[in-house]
Simulated assay, not measured.
Amino acid sequence: MPFAPFIGINHHGQTILLGCALLSSEDIETYRWLLRTWVDCMGGVAPKAIITDQSVPITKAIKLEMPNTRHRWCLWHIMEKQNKKFKSYKYFHEIKGAMSRCVYDSMSVDEFEASWKEFVDLYELKNNAWLYTLYKDRHRWVPTFLTDCFWAGMSTTQRNESVNAFFKGYVNSKTSLKEFVLKYDLALGAKCDKEILAEHQSRNTRYQIVTKFAAERFFQPVYTHYAFQKVMDEVRGCMYTTPSIHTDEEDLESSRWKTLVNLVICR
């Protein structure tokens, strides 16, 4: 039976299990029941954001059952399909590179729109049905359209796949439903033990700071080790950055620098 785990990330950057289901089918009504039941188990509180694979039944079910939840498609799975969708084209590698630059290098919606139009026109891809469908739903997968929501550093469902691999150590195709409940409880306990250990380490030990920046000293005692490492990465980045003043009104490099500065301040 299809195994559908609900996973999240805690403040230690660890994957946590929020629930799971074994499905008899993968149609819209089944997914609607699944989402409705899961939200009931969560005290009636739907998530603010959710990431899934690009699936029509799942997308429609989320829209009906969790209309206020920000739904994102797994970016990795979409970009991976380039190999299949463009393999018959003469400029296969050039097309892949151009699309990747549109998606990953665009720092604003306007920049993406201009870059995408140039990409489609250059390689004459206006009639490509796959690209047309993706463009219509660009707000679900293109990073620059998704900055209005907190994603805990996730843009793909790779953690979901890691959970599937994790469960293979507990269950297999011959596991009965009764055994599955017991095995799931063991797996959940193992995850909880790791979270308790990380919590203990964060409360009782400290990472050594690498600079005299006030921000680093401020976050050291209040952040978990996982979150503080993110701060230290930003601090190291600042140490190796050589800023320069641009007198141009809004050239590309200037706008990117401003975005970087805002990112550092926000974090």
Results as ranks from 00 to 15, higher is better:
1 M>V: 06
1 M>W: 09
3 F>M: 05
4 A>L: 15
7 I>Q: 09
7 I>W: 11
9 I>W: 09
15 T>Y: 05
17 L>R: 05
18 L>I: 04
20 C>Y: 10
21 A>G: 03
22 L>E: 06
22 L>N: 07
26 E>A: 13
26 E>H: 10
28 I>C: 10
28 I>T: 15
28 I>Y: 07
38 W>L: 07
43 G>V: 03
45 V>K: 15
47 P>A: 13
47 P>M: 14
52 T>C: 08
53 D>G: 09
54 Q>N: 15
57 P>C: 08
57 P>N: 09
63 K>R: 10
65 E>R: 08
69 T>Y: 12
71 H>N: 03
74 C>A: 04
75 L>E: 14
78 I>A: 04
79 M>H: 02
83 N>L: 12
84 K>P: 02
85 K>R: 13
89 Y>L: 12
97 G>Q: 13
104 Y>W: 14
105 D>C: 11
108 S>Q: 01
108 S>G: 00
110 D>S: 15
111 E>D: 14
116 W>T: 08
118 E>C: 11
119 F>G: 01
121 D>F: 04
121 D>S: 08
122 L>H: 13
122 L>D: 07
131 L>T: 07
133 T>A: 12
134 L>H: 12
135 Y>Q: 08
147 T>A: 08
147 T>F: 05
149 C>N: 12
151 W>E: 01
153 G>Q: 10
154 M>N: 12
157 T>S: 13
157 T>W: 03
159 R>D: 00
163 V>C: 04
165 A>N: 15
169 G>V: 01
169 G>C: 05
173 S>V: 08
175 T>R: 00
175 T>V: 01
176 S>F: 02
178 K>N: 03
183 K>D: 01
186 L>P: 00
190 A>L: 07
195 E>Y: 03
196 I>T: 15
196 I>H: 13
197 L>P: 02
199 E>N: 13
202 S>P: 11
204 N>D: 08
205 T>F: 14
206 R>E: 11
207 Y>Q: 08
219 F>I: 06
224 T>N: 07
224 T>M: 09
226 Y>A: 05
226 Y>M: 00
226 Y>S: 05
230 K>Q: 02
241 T>Y: 04
243 P>K: 01
246 H>S: 09
251 D>R: 00
253 E>A: 02
254 S>P: 00
256 R>Y: 08
258 K>W: 02
259 T>R: 00
265 I>G: 07
267 R>T: 09
